[in-house]
Design a protein around this nucleic acid. Structure first.
Lengths: 174, 174
DNA sequence: TTCAAAGTAAAACGATCATTTTACATCGTC
DNA sequence: GACGATGTAAAATGATCGTTTTACTTTGAA
C-alpha cells in the first residue's frame, strides 16, 4: 500500500465522518499516520487532497455501478449504503461546504455527477430499447433522493427508490 | 425588524452561500451588522445560532408547503428553488458539516424532516383517500432527490420529480 | 559505505477560530 | 437630567487553522 493510498483512504473516512472543513490537518496527520511534510509533498494542499479523495471515491463508486439494468443499479446503491454508510452524497457535501468557490473540488464533483448521469442514461436505453431523456432525469432524481433520504429514513429510502424506478421504467416501456 | 430577525435572516444567507463552518464569527458580525457582543447576548453561541436559523427556515419552508395536493407540493418546491436558490438541503448540509455531533443541530434537522414527511403523508392520504406508507416513502425520496439533484441539474430536476410523483400517485390510485 | 531520496517529529508561521471582556455611545423612561 | 437597558467598537483570550521549515532518521541502490 503506497503512501498515497493510505493517505486517501484514511482521509476519506475522516472527511465523511466529520466533514471537510471540520477535519483539520492535525486530525489528518494523526488519522492517517502520515507527517504533514509528507502529506504536503504528495497532496500539495488540503483542497488538492479533497479533490483527490473525491476522484478516488468516484472510481470506487463507478466500479459498484457496473451493472446491467436500472434495477440492479438501485440494488448496487443498497449495497453501497450498507457497507459505506448513510451520510449523504460526499460530493454534494464538499460542494456545499465550499460554496462552489474551489475549482478543483467543483471539477471533481461535476465529473462524478456527469459520470453517474451517463451511466443511468446508458442503462435506461439498454432496459427500454430507446433513449428517453425525461425518464433519465427521473431516475437521476430517484438515485439522488435515495442517497439523501437514507441519511434519516435508513435503507428503506433506497428500497422505495428502487420500487419507484421499476414503476417508471415499466410505464415508459408500454 | 428586531435584532434577532436581522441576525437570523442575514446569517441564513451567509451559511447557505458559504457553508456553516466556513462562515466565521467575523463574517457574521460584518454580514449582519451586529456586534459580536450583541450576537452572543441574543444567540448564545454559534451552534445555537445555526439551530435557530434552521428553525426559522423550517417555519418558512413549512408555510410554502401549505398546499392541497402532492402535485401542488412539487409546484411549491419549484417556487422555493426559484426564489431561494439551489444549493441543496440546508438541513442535511448542517448535519453533514457537524457529523451529527451537535445535539441542537441534530434536533432542528430531524424536526424539519419529520415535519415534511408528515406533510407528505397527509397529502398522499388526501389525494388517494387512504394511508399508503410505501407511497409516502417514495414521495419523500422524490422530494429529497429534487432538492439535491437541482444543485447540478437545475430546475428540471424538480419538474422530473413532479412528473414521477404524478405517475406513482396515479398508479397507486387504481 | 556512502549518498540521495523519502520518511518522521516538532516547531514556527501568520491568520483565523469562537468567545469574553473592556470601554464607550445611545436610548427611552421615571 | 439621571439611569438602567441595549447597542457598538475593539481588544484580548487561548485554541486551532493551513502551510512551511528545520533537524533528524531510515532506507535502498551505486
Amino acid at each position: 500500500m503506497t503512501i498515497m493510498d493510505r493517505l486517501v483512504t484514511a482521509s476519506e473516512a475522516l472527511f465523511d465522518r466529520h466533514g471537510f472543513t471540520a477535519t483539520g490537518m492535525d486530525k489528518l496527520t494523526k488519522g492517517t499516520g502520515i507527517s504533514s511534510r509528507t502529506l504536503y509533498k504528495h497532496a500539495g494542499s488540503k483542497n488538492a487532497l479533497i479533490a483527490r479523495v473525491l476522484g478516488e471515491r468516484d472510481k470506487r463508486f463507478a466500479r459498484r455501478l457496473e451493472v446491467e439494468s436500472i434495477d440492479a443499479l438501485f440494488k448496487a446503491l443498497e449495497d453501497w449504503v450498507r457497507v459505506e454508510g448513510r451520510r449523504g452524497c460526499l460530493f454534494l457535501r464538499a460542494l456545499g461546504e465550499t460554496g462552489g468557490d474551489t475549482p478543483e473540488i467543483n471539477e471533481a464533483v461535476l465529473a462524478h455527477k456527469a459520470r453517474v448521469a451517463e451511466r443511468i442514461a446508458v442503462l435506461v436505453e439498454r432496459d427500454n430499447g430507446r433513449e428517453d431523456p425525461m425518464l433519465v432525469e427521473q431516475i437521476i432524481v430517484l438515485f439522488e433522493g435515495a442517497t439523501a433520504a437514507a441519511v434519516y429514513r435508513g435503507e428503506q429510502a433506497v428500497v422505495a427508490a428502487r420500487q419507484s424506478a421499476a414503476i417508471l421504467m415499466a410505464g415508459a416501456r408500454s
